[in-house]
Design a protein around this nucleic acid. Structure first.
Length: 434
RNA sequence: UCCCGGGUAGCUCAACAGGCAGAGCAGCCGGCUGUUAACCGGCGGGUUGGAGGUUCGAGUCCUCCCCCGGGAGCCA
């Protein structure tokens, strides 16, 4: 048995010790009699230093030959050295290859085009930038779970195969369910409304599918949403909850993943400043005026396009709730404002810096009469929604909820322009491989 | 679906007005005891996305198709 096996992220506690690291060869450099290996192990990257004096001869020889992405076990002494990236390095005693690649690894440390990288996504995720983003993704999802746990929400699940269309079939992926038409869910919301009447405050993190043929940096056909629904929550409770969630997530990531944010060139201080104070809050009508005032044409009744969202986020420099949209451009399940039935008690949360809408939420229709009349207004059939209507017959209460777009949130926190890098294997229009 | 841009070596790109298809990196060989995408010297590397057309001659011009990227609409 060799020295104790440790992970790179634990090295600060092992300075002076001889340890074993199991990982992959990320890069190597040589200056003749001194050779440097960069080894990664999933928790970080480590510089290993090999010299003829300190390193066992056969291992020293291998340092000059092993190709990129060789899986290997390295044994050496941990030491702190300011010349090492990360501050710690391993003085290599010996190494043992696990598997040596025959050819050259497709992804080098040089430039590559996006198309090439996407075709090699299964290997691309081993590179430093992707490593940082995916570890931030992990932190975002943990933060969401921790937040809801603290707020007393119950974790639950929604079906992914559904028979009901939420708003028209064009955005749904159809499925043959033993001869019955079925779809991949575009949101768990309707089911969450049922579940919150049983468990009070509920949330789930699950996939959502949109068959829309959109081709932008903000869209995936398969993406993840953190959805919450709470009985007895009105519109105001809903916004307060969302604001606490977003602030919690950002503060959590800024603390737990500072190193990764730094690597991405993201200024954690700026992020924290953006969520520190109360979020901006405007009505849809005010938002339209602001957008117009910044030179982006749009009329009352239009939905916000990407340029309009960018204009808004540029105006405030912090997250913005846009409330009270015209009912006509929002789905059937949103509750009308009591003082103005042409608008609904909803809000979209627009992220700062042009990252777009990260939350959509609303107070829901809670009476059977309203619900049936709105389904009719939207020309939707009542039959598939029978169970949903049923909820309004048996102790219906005011309730509200929202869905947070996980990838857009990660893109904003990471400061990456395209959300395809925020999920291990993005599904997009014309992108099903790998 | 629409509007742009592109497809040349393993990768990133160049090639004037139609006239011998090139560079950097990667790879291989050699050098270097503190490298940071290391550096220095040498070597090999091509059905120019596909099909057809114009021409003495096509990477370059024309037609169709395929693929990729950027943006729009729709949304989280």
């Amino acid at each position: 048995m060799g020295p104790r096996v440790v992970y790179i992220e634990e090295l600060r506690d092992h300075v002076g010790d001889e340890v074993t690291i199991r990982g992959w060869l990320f890069n190597r450099r040589s200056s003749g009699k001194i050779r440097f290996l960069i080894v990664r192990d999933g928790t970080g990257f480590l510089q290993c230093v090999a010299t003829a004096k300190d390193t066992e001869p056969q291992s020293f020889e291998l340092c000059e030959r092993l190709p990129q992405e060789t899986s290997l076990v390295v044994i050496g002494t941990v030491r702190a050295d300011p010349r090492a990236p990360g501050g710690y390095e391993l003085l290599l005693s010996r190494l043992q290859p696990v598997q040596v690649p025959e050819g050259q690894f497709p992804i080098t440390l040089k430039e590559h085009g996006v198309g090439f990288l996407m075709d090699h996504r299964h290997l691309w995720i081993r590179m430093r930038r992707q490593f940082a983003i995916l570890r931030i993704r992990d932190a975002v999802l943990w933060a969401v779970r921790e937040f809801f746990k603290r707020e007393g929400f119950v974790a639950t699940e929604c079906p992914v195969i559904v028979g009901t269309q939420v708003e028209g079939t064009t955005t749904l992926f159809p499925l043959d369910y033993f001869g019955e038409p079925a779809y991949l869910s575009q949101s768990g919301q309707l089911y969450l409304e049922a579940t919150c009447m049983a468990l009070g405050k509920v949330y789930w993190i699950g996939p959502a599918f949109r068959a829309e043929k959109s081709k932008t940096r903000r869209h995936l056909t398969e993406f993840w949403m953190a959805e919450a629904e709470a009985a007895y929550f009105d519109h105001e409770d809903n916004l307060a909850l969302q604001e606490r969630l977003v602030r919690y997530v950002v503060e959590y990531v800024a603390t737990e993943r500072r190193r990764e944010l730094e690597f991405l060139g993201r200024d954690a201080t700026k992020l924290l400043a953006e969520v520190k104070g109360p979020f901006a809050r405007v009505t849809y009508a005010e938002a339209v005026r602001i957008v117009n005032g910044r030179g982006v044409p749009m009329e009352y009744g239009d939905d916000f396009g990407a340029p309009a969202e960018d204009a808004l986020s540029g105006h405030f420099g912090k997250p913005i709730f846009v409330e009270r949209f015209p009912a006509k451009i929002k789905p059937f399940y949103m509750k009308r404002a009591p003082d103005d039935p042409s608008v609904v008690l909803c809000a979209d949360l627009i992220a700062p810096e042009g990252y777009g809408e990260i939350i959509g939420g609303s107070q829901r229709v809670d009476t059977e009469e309203e619900l049936i009349s709105q389904l009719r207004e939207y020309s939707l059939p009542l039959e598939p929604y029978r169970w949903y209507i049923d909820l309004r017959k048996w102790g219906s209460v005011p309730h509200s909820g929202f869905g947070l777009g996980v990838e857009r949130t990660i893109a904003w926190i990471c400061g990456v322009r395209h959300i395809r890098e925020t999920i291990p294997f993005p599904r997009m229009l014309d992108r099903l491989y790998p």
